[in-house]
Design a protein around this nucleic acid. Structure first.
Lengths: 195, 195
DNA sequence: GAAATTTCTTAATCTACATTATTGGCCCCG
DNA sequence: CGGGGCCAATAATGTAGATTAAGAAATTTC
């Protein structure tokens, strides 16, 4: 049941069976049903979540009521409101489920204890965070330098599996256009089958 | 001379004098003159750089020749092409100096050795990276949800000291508008002194 | 310290994308 | 089966910000 998360960890650090057992004992399983929330923007984020089944999304709502999606979290991904988790103040991220989803939760306090008990985890989360930072910067650049069309293509290239799974509305909110414009782009794209 | 960097580190981890000395011995000082490059986009990034004097900028050039600034690095800031540093492949970040600038360089290989020799550094760079990630996501959200006007205000709020220092052109490239439009915004802003 | 280069401003025109509105399909629930 | 939501498609109109151009101001260079 925790095979996925142990496998995820084993890609970066090597744990003894005892360490694995200790780590797993800190996790608590939870199921979030479709459209239910794991975190609301008024909450303080107290856990990191690892998705084992289903799909979560992290998004904010701006002053005009528009949703902006920061992250999708399919199985094998971590998700949290890092700002809120670090500062222990209310953040501005909502996390809800696009379909019924199973997660493993690691409490912030346990995570910090883990850094002391098994310093290798310091390394693990450093690496995870470094990779997230690289991805976040690439996306920032995409947003600044690419047209909507190119951002859509970039999304398709980067998340080929997610794309069938998601409503177009969600993809539009991720790449930063209205659903209407995404629809228009796709129909124009069908007309001229490009290169 | 390395007081600034030791102070920066002391905000997150506590080092013994011997550890400090060892760390400092790994650093090499370098001066980059105005308009000279610390890193070109065709290079593999082999160092993390800590700025002690002056100001660097990290930017990419898109297909149409426009510059997009990912980061300014005034004194007390770290800068590197994280993607290239991690993958040891050519990245797409240029780093050059806006004025004559002094940096302390830490080679990737030394940084990795440091993680073994003084594990506290694993923690230090984890925390630094976490903070960068939070900042990067906030900026991504700003880009997706705010108008150019609001992004300019957000920049002024966030970098009150930098703003006098920098050419408007640079600020425009950072917030993602043309210099012409930034100029227009500012003159409109003068006309109606806002609230 | 004058020429050369770069930067800033203003203004006219243009365009990628937003807004609003309408329609039809699909799914859920009674 | 029949109605109420939600989602996608299409299209008309609107707008934030880009593009282009050209002159003024500031800085760099020699």
């Amino acid at each position: 049941m925790s095979a996925l998360i142990l496998n995820n960890i084993a890609q970066h650090i090597r744990l003894t069976p005892e360490e694995e057992a200790h780590f797993v004992s800190l996790l608590s399983a939870k199921t979030i049903r479709r459209k239910q929330f794991l975190l609301r923007e008024t909450d303080v984020c107290r856990h990191s979540a690892f998705v084992t089944h289903g799909c979560l999304r992290g998004y904010t709502v701006d002053a005009n009521g528009f949703e902006h999606i920061l992250q999708f979290a399919p199985p094998g991904w971590w998700i949290a409101d890092m700002y809120s988790l670090l500062s222990q103040q209310p953040g501005n991220l909502n996390i809800d489920a696009l379909e019924d989803t199973d997660v493993l939760l690691l409490a912030k306090s346990d995570q910090e204890q883990l850094y002391h008990d098994i310093p290798k985890f310091e390394r693990f989360f450093r690496i995870i965070t470094e990779n997230s930072l690289v991805a976040s910067r690439r996306r920032l650049l995409d947003n600044m330098s690419l047209s909507a069309q190119q951002r859509y293509e970039s999304f398709c290239r980067h998340y080929p599996t997610l794309i069938h799974h998601l409503a177009q509305k969600q993809i539009a909110a991720y790449i930063g256009v209205t659903p209407e414009f995404l629809s228009k782009m796709k129909s124009e794209w069908l007309r001229k089958p490009k290169g």
